[in-house]
Design a protein around this nucleic acid. Sequence first.
RNA 1: GCCCAGGUAGUGUAGCGGCCUAUCAUGCGGGCCUGUCACGCCCGCGACACGGAUUCGAAUUCCGUCCUGGGCGCCA
Length: 430
Amino acid sequence: MHIPIKKVTPETEHAEIVGWVHEVRDLGGLLFFLIRDRTGILQVTAPKKKVDPAVLEILKTVSRESVVRIRGKVKSIDKAPGGRELIPNSVEILNSCESPLLLDVVEKVPAELDTRLDARFMDIRKPRVTAVFLIRSAVIRMVNEFLCARDFVHVTTPKIVAAATEGGTELFPIAYFEKEAFLSQSPQLYKQMMMAAGFEKVYEIGPIFRAEEHNTTKHLNEATSIDVEVSFADHQDVMNLLEDLIVSVYGCVRDTCSDQLATLSLDDLPVPPTPFPRIPYREAIDIAARKTGESFSFGDDIGTVAEKAIGEEMGQHYFIVDWPTAIKPYYAMPHREDPALCRAFDLMHPRMELASGAQRVHQHDLLVEQIRSKGLVPENFAFYLTPFRYGMPPHAGWGLGAERLVMTMLGLNNIREAVLFPRDRHRMVP
RNA sequence: GCCCAGGUAGUGUAGCGGCCUAUCAUGCGGGCCUGUCACGCCCGCGACACGGAUUCGAAUUCCGUCCUGGGCGCCA
């Protein structure tokens, strides 16, 4: 049986490995092959005079990125990468690879993102890209573990929805038999209904769809949202939960993904310092005004320039709290003493927004009033409002963008780097 | 959606009216090489997005089309 390349150490005697031919160096009397699998790279060394001529014959014909199985004797040697190399006894080409390659897996020559995404399967073979997705996998696993450990119920809510009820963003219309339906922009309404169902703590990690024609490095038309909703909790409670989650995920990545972090030259991944500052919206726009020289009025949304300026000033993760009720969704709970402000918050990384959440309105009549004040028609989503008349507990929650979390954690320049097959304004394939 | 910048071998680039039979790197094919690790050396292969216009002459200027990147807006 083959073993992962990472498990081949200077102490190993014999090994069988399977993987891709990463690089070939023919020195004449000596052949070097670098064989790559998900876990690492191993040098296979073939001195022409010492290896079986039949093995040599196969080795001489194998093209880069072909899939091979190699058995041999492991030699401990300082000169080889990782202090060990494999002297082959047998070589089998499981599938040969065409040439030229679609892009350079060894990264001697860079490839543009567009080229990379067209040949994504091959792009992902690059150790640096593999590392990003192994870390992403670890992040998602840790979010699951973190929330399970706190008695959260994992739920799955529909992605095909009947109406554009939530407002805020454009939705993708789809044909649903003889009716029009939409792809869900967020599980918001459903996770709130789960509060009425009595689950108390729910989470979902799933796709969300936004039909915005944006063209930026931090937006996707299909993204992954980590959504949480908690009964008998307020905005402060769920902010604390979110902060704990972020710190915990960073810590776990640092502890369990050291190989991948090293591949990305991020050996010292800093865990964000806590507590994350909570700055009121008014203070945030003051900072933006001071840093940019532009003027902002209460009720203005925080645009890209302001967001950057505030992020620069803060220099770490932070929350913006006490948002104007007018620019947050109807389900955000207004402050009792000042209804112009609400119990909504955004979690910010210096580069961008990561999450937004709020204590929700749980009183039916107030919710209806707020829906009307946003110019929406309550009758259009009775399915959502009904539970509020039959014992809806007070609750709060948030939604966190998984891609943005990974992107900011690893310092990726483009959010597309954090998605296997990104969907943007112009790309549906592959 | 607006604005800007682009599309040159498989990949990444240089060239920006005639010195272009188009540069360099990588790759691929052939040759030499026993410790490479971006192996090295020699020979060769391979490209101006598409359509139109201007011009004696267009990769280079202009118009249109398609495609891409970035900034902003919108949005999370």
